[in-house]
């Protein structure tokens, strides 16, 4: 075989006036340059108020998504409230750090985004366990390209529509210029009202404009 599957990937997350937008491409490839999947979803909703974007080793990302979803359910039952986005991020960072220090790192970069009682938040986590909060973030092999666009286009207090367009354009730039990024765009919007995944038609409309 040709080594483990990696997403390659470009994912972006950004905050807008009252929520967050997450976007990612759909390509999964392996080292030799083979595209393994062209329909893989890299944005995983963990609950109706939080989702993660994944990049890196697909296997690790899947396990993290499954176990975080279950952990959030348990948290809600134990504490009779939803966890804060910060609490989820800090918990995951501890897990990633412990794995690294036991020489079994989870080789993924993850962006946790969602809305809690304190408002919209996005956190970036790497496989060493660092946690970084910011207004906009990107991960994956195409992130330098996405960052180039976001640096110029992002501003605070954007409307939902502006935020979605910015995220889609950032991913699209990476699709154009990064070999491991491509095959369509997934977009998830999380607002205080809940979590919504955009249809392909909606995404296309933004690209056409």
């Amino acid at each position: 075989m040709h080594g483990p599957m990696k997403t390659g990937t470009t994912t972006v997350a950004l905050k807008y006036s009252d929520g967050v937008v997450l976007a990612a491409d759909r390509r999964v490839s392996i080292n030799t340059g083979l595209v393994v999947s062209r329909t893989y979803t890299k944005i995983v909703p963990l609950a109706d108020f939080v989702a993660i974007t994944v990049s890196g080793l697909v296997a690790d990302a899947q396990k993290i998504s499954e176990f975080l979803t279950a952990r959030i359910k348990k948290f809600e039952l134990e504490r009779r409230r939803k966890p804060l986005i910060k609490e989820i991020s800090r918990y995951l960072s501890l897990v990633m750090h412990n794995h690294l220090k036991s020489y079994m790192p989870l080789i993924t970069h993850i962006i946790v985004g969602g809305v809690d009682v304190r408002g919209p938040h996005i956190f970036f986590l790497d496989d060493a366990g660092s946690v970084v909060e910011d207004d906009f973030l990107s991960s994956g092999s195409g992130s330098p390209i996405a960052y180039g666009y976001l640096e110029a286009a992002y501003r605070e207090g954007m409307s939902e529509e502006e935020a979605i367009r910015t995220a889609i354009y950032a991913i699209n730039s990476a699709i154009m210029r990064d070999v491991a990024t491509g095959d369509g765009i997934d977009v998830v919007v999380i607002s205080p009202k809940g979590l919504r995944k955009l249809s392909d038609e909606e995404v296309k409309k933004y690209l056409r404009r």
Partner: peptide, 15 residues
């Protein structure tokens, strides 16, 4: 604080 980076809920501490 170590695990979640936040203050514990009163009821959770009691539990």
């Amino acid at each position: 604080r170590l695990i979640f980076g936040e203050e514990i809920d009163v009821y959770t501490l009691a539990e």
